[in-house]
Amino acid sequence: MILKPPPLAAALLLAGVCVPAALFIGLMAGSSGWGWPQGDILWLIRLPRVLSAFGTGAGLALAGALIQLVTRNPLADPYVLGVSSGASVGALLALMLLPAGLFLAPELGAVLGALAATSLAFLFTWRAMGKSGDGRIGNQPGTVVVLLVGVMIGAACGAAVSFMLAIANDQQLRSLVFWLLGDLNGASLWWPLWAAVGIALLLAWPRARELDWLTRGDAWAWTLGVPVAKRRRLAILAACIATGAAVATAGSIGFVGLVAPHIVRLVGLRHARALLPFSVVFGGVFLVLADTVARTLIAPAQLPVGVVSAAVGVPLFLFLLLRRSQAR
């Protein structure tokens, strides 16, 4: 199979068209039909929601691209770090323990939960990777540790969630399920999210080439002069920041983090230096559009955006998987 050079100029052009177009569609479409919204609806409801959707999709896609590189696993997504499950636990705890209707309670709970899970995942992988004292490869655990730590944290959080679902009353159950599915309804704090995604991208992008070399083997990358353990920690830190912020804003929205980097690769942007920024752009556009569908399809009722992104993401992913196995 011949690989063409990455279509950078075309991708830049496409991004320049798609981003404003998606934002425009997101702003124009509403529960009451198509049209430019009135002052307060635009500034207080539509715009913050569209910007939150963009930031959430961008953060999850960036984290997905990073985790796939670090684990050398094309099927990994940001949630293998266990961050989303941590956020869910935090949010559910807030919903169940605090009085109903308390302002921003589940959001803050999610932030704390995501932070706790992030720190835990980060601490464990950091410790496991830092063992070979002088930075040489030795018997470094590498990718398996990242996956195992994430799976363990995810399993613990999953048990906690099941426990809370079992003891919740009917009204609590409704908001719990909504949170678990992922939802942008009422997501308005867009700027901390954008800041987090920006920081994550700035952390990882300057080292993108080294992350590419790492995918071909830790030992080989080290013989090229790459400080393997440091770079791996950096990528995981960036992925944790982006995922934590996204989940705290909108709950566990699936498939963006898994599928967005693959679409970008399919287009031919296979190097991390292009993959990371274009995953951010594509993930953002994808989720703005998915959210627009979610809140207009059965208006005035709203679907959780997780339903829409999964409905698009699952078939797309299975298609990719099929293509992959046929290419072998």
Binding site: R72, P74, T215, R216, G217, W220, W222, T223, G225, R270
Partner: peptide, 20 residues
Amino acid sequence: ARELARQRAWCPQFWLDPFP
């Protein structure tokens, strides 16, 4: 590691190519 990279090249028996 960086100076060593200019001094010796190592060609292992096995390669990982997870991405195109």
